[in-house]
Design a protein around this nucleic acid. Structure first.
Length: 375
DNA sequence: AAATCCGACAACCGCATCGGA
DNA sequence: TTCCGATGCGGTTGTCGGATT
């Protein structure tokens, strides 16, 4: 645009306009060079961020202010986190996208070090790809159910596996737990929103997060003892709002975890009879039973968790509350609402997890594959 | 080994919003 | 109140490198 405009301004006679024209004619586009990055970083080091057009004029860069801003925010800024998204981050993106849609910058605010561009690209290249393969809209209820009932558990398992690997290999321990705020616990079980249902699209789920907690979606160790779990102690199952139903499918993944299932948004069960879509997802080996029985008997999320989480992965709901269920070991898992989701990992019972995983891998090729490196 | 395909991601573009004159 | 420049945001495109044929 600038180049086109520049070409149209041949009649400009003032020196200032002439300089502007010259600058616009020389505007660079495309990939940034090392020298340009250095120029930009040096300028910002001296003058700070902002006033991008001024920066573009004064820094010696032959770029637009927009381009400079983008380069800084998406690439050069010191706190940018490089590398693959962790399962925790992927889970958070899925959750927040379900609440806010394509509000990338808003989502990015809750993933420290990640940019909206990175999250957007992740969504388009990974998540939407799966939706295309399913031949469903990425915003459809069916797809959301798949995300909720398949990907999210998988990501939780990956997180548990990562934790287990750290435990067994002596890697760096997970970060220390963020400080808990009394309002978090007080807010638990105060809402009955489903994890993937209609949400208040304006309320910030982190609004109750303690100041300086460093991002609201973090790992922290959990006391494995049911009797000493303060988290579970304040939210007995009897006092909880209704647990979202979970339509169970008798199937386990290549790691031996399962069953996984689909459920509709109101938890009443869903019929999923699109065999082509199942095949495209790699679920064609799934035993769906008789054709007229594809609405599966509901089990509770609690049952599901007890059967799949191997005791090591839990999600604790803080802040806004929501449906919370406890797993068999005293943790709590919740879904829904504008809450503060904190997937809690511990190394407890990870030996069992590893045994399950290794035995599952021996089952061979008849179990389905979901692809390689995550979604 | 070459051609093609495809995923990942950096960068650009157009539009919306905000704030100051 | 209106105008206009600066900035932010989301959609889209371009490019590169690895995988596949």
């Amino acid at each position: 645009m600038s180049q086109r405009k520049g070409a149209a301004m041949a009649a400009v006679t003032s020196s200032k306009h002439h300089e502007d024209q010259e600058m616009m004619m020389e505007l660079r586009r495309g990939p940034w060079m090392l020298e340009e990055d250095n120029l930009l970083m040096n300028y910002i080091a001296c003058h700070g961020e902002g006033r991008w057009n001024l920066l573009a004029r004064c820094s010696g860069l032959k770029r637009t202010g927009k381009s400079c801003r983008l380069r800084w925010l998406n690439y050069l800024k010191p706190d940018i986190k490089r590398g693959n998204l962790t399962p925790e981050e992927q889970l958070l993106i899925l959750e927040l996208h379900s609440k806010w849609g394509n509000r990338w910058s808003r989502i990015a605010q809750h993933l420290p070090g990640r940019t909206d561009n990175e999250i957007k690209n992740y969504w388009r290249t990974r998540v939407q790809k799966q939706a295309r393969q399913l031949r469903v809209d990425a915003n459809s209820a069916v797809f959301r159910d798949a995300v909720r009932c398949y990907w999210m558990p998988r990501l939780l398992e990956k997180m548990a596996a990562t934790s287990s690997a750290h435990h067994h290999h002596g890697d760096l321990p997970p970060p220390p737990p963020p400080p808990l705020h009394p309002s978090h616990v007080a807010g638990m079980a105060s809402s009955s929103s489903p994890i993937y249902g209609s949400h208040d699209h304006e309320q910030d789920p982190t609004s109750n997060a303690p100041a300086g907690s460093g991002g609201y979606y973090q790992r922290y160790p959990v006391d494995p003892s049911p009797s000493t779990s303060t988290t579970s102690g304040s939210t007995s199952a009897a006092a909880l709002p209704p647990v979202p139903c979970f339509s169970e499918l008798s199937w386990v993944d290549q790691y031996g975890y399962g069953p996984y299932g689909y459920t509709d948004l109101d938890g009443a069960g869903v019929s999923f009879d699109d065999s082509a879509a199942l095949e495209s997802l790699g679920l064609d080996g799934l035993d769906l039973g008789p054709a007229d029985s594809n609405v599966y008997s509901d089990t509770t999320l609690l049952d599901y968790l007890n059967s799949t989480c191997a005791g090591g992965t839990m999600m604790t709901m803080m802040g806004g509350g929501g449906s919370v269920v406890h797993n068999s070991c005293g943790g709590a898992m919740g879904g829904g609402g504008d809450a503060d989701y904190r997937p809690c990992l511990s190394s407890w019972r990870t030996d069992e997890l590893v045994v399950q995983a290794s035995s599952a891998r021996k089952l061979g090729d008849h179990q389905h594959q979901w692809g390689g490196g995550g979604i």
